[in-house]
Amino acid sequence: MLVDKITVNLKINGLATELRVPPQKTLLEALREEAGLTGTKHGCELGECGACTVLINGSPQLSCLVLAAACDGAEVLTIEGLANGPELHPLQSAFAELGAAQCGYCTPGVLLAAAALLVRNPSPTRDEIRQALSGNLCRCTGYLQIWNAVERAAEQLRTR
């Protein structure tokens, strides 16, 4: 069966983008293979790790289980769009300073899930941070540094 490609118009990191994809292509595949944005990682590709987390219209979701074709009209934020030009997002600097990234594979997904949390809740408790990040596995850090870094970034965002 020959399936036609679908045209999808979306915004990726603020940039209007047109993709031509077959229906079965996931957003993860389209980002990495069509848009050249390899910052979004692929882990399990089954919803079981969170490495592929991106923000779709501000909501953290798993790009491995979303069709690119379903993203017509959506605004997608990937890790490449988190910094403001050369200026790191406070989460990114806090992660670097506090050792919250080791191998770094989970980091893009964790940062985006954390960024969405801080928009929704600028003063999260540690428990709320743990909750919000409980869909992002990290095999290196043991999570403690990650929670510390999110707390520091929240503080910086509040005072600036």
Binding site: M1, V3, I6, P22, P23, Q24, T26, L46, A70
Partner: peptide, 12 residues
């Protein structure tokens, strides 16, 4: 990559 099989897609 663990890819989806081919299918036709409708969005009613």
């Amino acid at each position: 990559m663990l890819r989806l099989p081919e299918f036709s897609y409708f969005q009613p």
